[in-house]
Computed example of a mutant assay.
Amino acid sequence: MLFRRRQIPTRIERLRVAVWPRNSWSRSTKYFGKRVLRLTATPHAIAIGFAAGAFASCTPLVGFHFLTAFGLAWVLRGNLIAAALGTSIGNPITFPFIWAFTFKIGQWILHGRAPKADPAHVHQQFQHGLFEKSLDSLWPMLKPMFIGGVPLGLVIGSVSYVIVYKSVEVYQRRRKRILAERGEQLFPAPGRTLEEDGGA
């Protein structure tokens, strides 16, 4: 194949790239942003799909964020590819803060108080318990995170919706204008020649 990589990446390398980008985070963010803008759907469908992915990232359903995002996007009639891209809101940099905030918000809703929670400590404790503890012993920590994930997910999802909707709307409007201008140059209006258009 013409553009095939010389060295096929292993499964471990693919997993590592999925968790931690090969290049810088800023470059990866720009790449995901362009992927979102270039989707072929209405601004609402793209924005609601991305918001569904952002909301799913605020839940402690590690390993099921894609499925949760797809389910929400399907119910809300959002774009499924945008939903997958929206899950990038949850990444190794943001997860410690997301989990700490959801835990604190959930504790405040359940018990009327929000304990001091260090993001790094909550992140480490959650990861350690997720793979080594049973669901019964992990539930006291998961319960407030599930409850706290709803309001935090709604806020992040709403902000994401507004930003993505406006960005896609501007991008699509500008793209239509550029295509229209190119079409006029290639196919001038009846009764006008290319020389007349150039001299105008």
Score class of each variant (00 low, 15 high):
R4F: 13
R5N: 10
Q7V: 14
I8D: 14
I8P: 08
T10E: 05
I12L: 15
E13I: 10
R14H: 15
L15K: 10
L15W: 12
L15V: 09
R16V: 11
V19L: 15
W25H: 00
S26L: 13
R27K: 04
S28W: 02
S28K: 04
S28A: 09
Y31V: 10
R38P: 06
T42S: 15
T42E: 03
P43K: 09
P43C: 09
H44W: 10
I46L: 07
G49K: 08
A52H: 03
A52C: 15
S57Q: 12
V62A: 08
G63W: 05
H65E: 07
F66C: 01
F66Y: 04
T68F: 03
T68S: 07
F70V: 01
L72K: 02
A73R: 02
W74H: 11
L80W: 06
A82C: 08
A83S: 13
I89G: 03
N91A: 11
P92I: 08
T94V: 09
I98H: 10
W99N: 13
A100N: 12
A100R: 10
F101R: 03
F103N: 05
L110K: 01
R113I: 03
A114K: 01
P115Y: 04
K116L: 15
A120S: 13
A120K: 12
V122L: 12
V122C: 13
H123F: 15
Q125T: 15
Q125M: 12
H128S: 12
H128V: 04
G129S: 03
G129K: 02
G129F: 02
L130K: 09
L130F: 15
L130A: 13
E132F: 08
D136W: 11
S137E: 15
L142P: 00
P144D: 02
P144R: 00
F146W: 02
F146R: 00
V150W: 00
L154Q: 00
V155C: 01
V155K: 00
I156A: 02
G157F: 00
S160Q: 07
Y161K: 03
V164N: 03
Y165C: 01
V170H: 05
Y171H: 04
Q172D: 05
A180D: 11
A180M: 10
E181K: 11
R182I: 14
R182V: 10
R182A: 14
E184K: 14
Q185F: 07
Q185Y: 06
Q185V: 11
Q185T: 11
F187R: 13
P188I: 09
A189V: 08
P190Y: 04
P190L: 04
G191M: 09
L194R: 14
L194G: 05
E196T: 02
G198Q: 11
G198A: 13
